[in-house]
Design a protein around this nucleic acid. Structure first.
Lengths: 154, 154
DNA sequence: TTTTTTGCAAAACCTTTGCAGTTGG
DNA sequence: CCAACTGCAAAGGTTTTGCAAAAAA
């Protein structure tokens, strides 16, 4: 699991598109690899390797966690998958298409919100203008105090 | 090591101020604890627990890493210290006063820049306006592509 | 003296690696 | 067929915990 994106994101909607991309890059489409993809295609949130290995809440059959890690690495290199750190604890994986969704995390209550996309674009634009960086919040989300915690009496 | 700040940052400039704060909070000022503080007071960048335990490059005497972790935890609870994740690898610790310095990390070349403070204020203001969060980039820095990598021919 | 802190050992947690056997193309 | 992949075991890197001994106040 590296910090930087291993390659350009490749957006897929289903297993067939994912399988085609894998084969185009010289990778095989094994049962354990399909299983990881099935879990991520069905998940509505980033999953840890352990969650996938345990079957993603009944979504898929349980499998070996080493294999899950190795497949996540391959899928990340291909650009089909990326991972995000929402706090401490294990990294969480999602399809590259889901990267367009940015998270914003409250460090008081732990809430994980999906950030408004236009607002995030404005933030990225401002960072580019003022700091010169093409910012991505896909690996580390924005962390702060959410409105509820900010207004709560402490 | 938790995600959220354990308490309000307490700014100190030297060992005496740190010691006073510790005693005011009912903590003792032991030799190993002083050693961690000495390393952080002298460091010009966030240090890992291992770096501190190894003597921070000759700055202080080597010490036991368990003790370093426990002291960093105490110092973080008191608000004298906080930690930042600059990428994968160990967390890095710094005095709370150093939190005013925000980092911005390039995920291509690994460069760690100190971000312009006014620009970061503008970013925090925009996040507050558009997303409602009081953003902090002290735990997770902004990650992106630096100007040099962006203009580099790939 | 009393309560906190230390130092060592051991474990916990997340992730990677080695390798012999299996499988996809 | 054979390179890619799997599953198990083992190890690696970072951090936490247990506990008896030491030290701060």
């Amino acid at each position: 699991m590296t910090t930087s994106p291993d390659s350009t994101p490749v957006l897929v909607r289903n297993m067939d598109e994912a399988a085609a991309e894998l084969r185009a890059r010289g990778h095989r489409v094994s049962a354990p690899r399909r299983l990881v993809l099935t879990a991520l295609l069905a998940a509505h949130r980033p999953l840890s390797a352990e969650e996938i290995a345990e079957g993603a809440g009944g979504l898929v059959a349980p499998s070996d966690i080493t294999s899950v890690y190795r497949n996540l690495e391959t899928l990340e290199q291909v650009g089909l998958v990326s991972h995000v750190h929402l706090g401490h604890g294990p990294g969480r994986y999602r399809l590259a298409g889901d990267e367009r969704r940015d998270y914003i995390v409250c460090d008081r209550c732990g809430r994980v919100d999906v950030a408004d996309a236009e607002a995030m674009d404005a933030v990225r634009t401002l960072v580019a203008e003022r700091l010169g960086y093409e910012a991505r919040f896909t690996h580390f989300p924005i962390v702060g105090v959410c409105p509820r915690c900010a207004s709560a009496v402490v």
